[in-house]
Computed example of a mutant assay.
Amino acid sequence: MEHYQWLSEKFFSETVSGLRTVSLSAVADAAEALDGVRRRGGRVYAMGNGGSASTATHLVCDLVKTARRPSEPGLRAFALADNIAVLTAYANDMSYADAFVHQLTNNAEVGDAVIAISASGRSPNIIAALRAARRMGLLSIGMLGCGGGTAVDLVDIPLIVGSDDFGVIETAHIAIVHAFADVLRAAPGPVGATATARTP
């Protein structure tokens, strides 16, 4: 039991340390940018693979529902891995590396934003989609780890968790998702104003 407790404490400690490496000014920049997309009536496209695909789905849920302000239009957000039929059709008939690219080019417009979630920052389909997003003039936010990988140079706002441990990185990414939800839900007001508590 002591061995497992030690391992658990180690993971918790490393996760907290990793989260503390994320730039709060970059999180604020990303939240402000997403609020701008909301006010313009634009859309947000989130993408990731594996656990990061689940984080993208979680992010979209929180942006659409939890981050909504009363009496204001909600943020329109979509996760590119959620439609299994579309994803597998592109992957099977073309290539998995371009499965996100085709969805962006079919749907996204100037004024929209892309959020790439990748622990390594090196996934080929993420890199291809970020390059497409840059060509299309889309705002891009990267939730990354491992120093940012190739993706760090392809996003407008990088949010990098200072760790090489995928479990630590992905756990910190979920914390960033919840930070976005709370920040975007809070009514605009003076610095230090307290946001209304969320209802589960």
Rank of each mutant, 00 (worst) to 15 (best):
A175G: 11
A172W: 01
A56G: 13
R198Y: 08
A119F: 01
R39Q: 14
E170G: 03
L87G: 00
D112Q: 08
G189A: 15
T199V: 13
I127W: 01
P70A: 13
N83L: 08
I176N: 07
V101T: 15
E2I: 12
F166K: 02
V155I: 11
K65Y: 13
L159F: 07
R40T: 01
V110I: 10
I157Y: 08
D182P: 02
G189S: 15
Y45G: 05
I157P: 04
P158L: 07
R43P: 01
A197H: 09
G145R: 05
M143P: 00
P188E: 12
G142N: 13
E14H: 09
I141N: 13
P158V: 07
D98R: 14
G149A: 04
G145T: 00
A77N: 03
R40V: 06
V27A: 12
L75H: 04
H173K: 07
R134E: 14
A195P: 14
G149R: 02
Y4I: 07
V64P: 03
A46E: 10
L138D: 05
S118Y: 02
N83G: 00
A195Q: 09
F100V: 05
A113V: 07
C146Q: 11
T105S: 14
R38M: 09
A33S: 14
T194C: 06
I127Q: 03
G42H: 02
G48R: 06
